[in-house]
Each structure stands twice: as structure tokens, then as C-alpha cells.
Simulated assay, not measured.
Amino acid sequence: GCGFEHVCRATIYLRNVEDFADVDAVYAKAFTATVKPARVAFGNNMIPKGALVEIDVIAVSSESE
């Protein structure tokens, strides 16, 4: 039930730190709210299955279960 608007924190793992500008541009298109989620990015990672980017997010819903 959560969407991009519920993301409060993102961790971005990059195989090549030089790709940060490209990833940042896509990230800005995905997160369009006035206040962007907190984030941290790490470069030079060996990501499984040959991936170039892996993103882990924490989302919080205001709805109670």
C-alpha cells in the first residue's frame, strides 16, 4: 500500500561511482515531492547478478492496520 510518496529513506549502491549523476537524474524524476527522502549512496560495490545499481528504501504509511 506504499508508494514513492511514502519513502522516507533510500540507500543507493552503485557498481561504478561515476554513474551517480545518471542515477541522481532518474532519482529526481521518481521522487517529485517538495521534500525528498533522506538518502545515502555508496560506490564501487559488487552487486549480485551483474546489476549496476541497487536501491533499498524504507517507506512509512500513515494508515494504521
Rank of each mutant, 00 (worst) to 15 (best):
A41F: 03
C8K: 04
V40P: 01
D24W: 12
C2I: 07
N44S: 11
T32V: 15
S64H: 11
N16H: 09
R9G: 04
N45V: 13
N16M: 03
Y27N: 03
G43D: 04
K29P: 12
V35S: 09
A25G: 02
S62E: 15
V23R: 00
V35L: 13
D22G: 11
V17L: 14
V40C: 04
F4P: 11
A41Q: 07
P37K: 02
V35E: 15
A33T: 11
V7G: 01
H6R: 10
R9W: 08
N45C: 15
Y27G: 00
T32E: 15
A30Q: 11
A28D: 12
E54V: 05
R15Q: 15
S64V: 10
D56A: 08
E65W: 09
D19G: 05
H6Q: 15
I47E: 06
C8Y: 03
F31A: 01
A10W: 03
I12A: 01
G1I: 01
D19K: 00
V23P: 01
A33R: 15
V17C: 09
D56Y: 04
C8E: 05
S61R: 01
N45A: 12
Y13N: 13
T34P: 06
I55A: 08
D22I: 04
L52F: 09
V26M: 14
S62K: 03
I55N: 04
A28C: 06
E54W: 07
A25D: 15
A21H: 10
P48S: 08
V35R: 12
R9I: 09
C8V: 04
D24Y: 12
I55Y: 00
V26C: 12
D24R: 09
Y27D: 08
E5M: 04
F42T: 15
A28S: 09
V26R: 08
F42D: 14
E63D: 11
A38P: 02
K49W: 15
E54R: 03
G50K: 02
G50F: 10
V17G: 15
D22S: 07
F4T: 14
L52W: 06
S62Y: 06
Y13T: 14
D24M: 11
K49M: 12
P48C: 09
K29G: 13
P48D: 11
A33D: 06
F20I: 05
T11E: 07
F20V: 06
V17F: 14
A33N: 13
F31Y: 12
G50Y: 14
T32N: 11
V57H: 05
I47P: 10
T32F: 10
A33M: 10
S62V: 11
E63A: 07
A59I: 02
S62Q: 08
K36P: 07
T32Q: 14
V53F: 02
I58S: 00
E65H: 13
N16Q: 08
R39L: 11
P48M: 10
E54A: 04
A10I: 00
A10Q: 07
N16V: 03
A33K: 13
K49P: 03
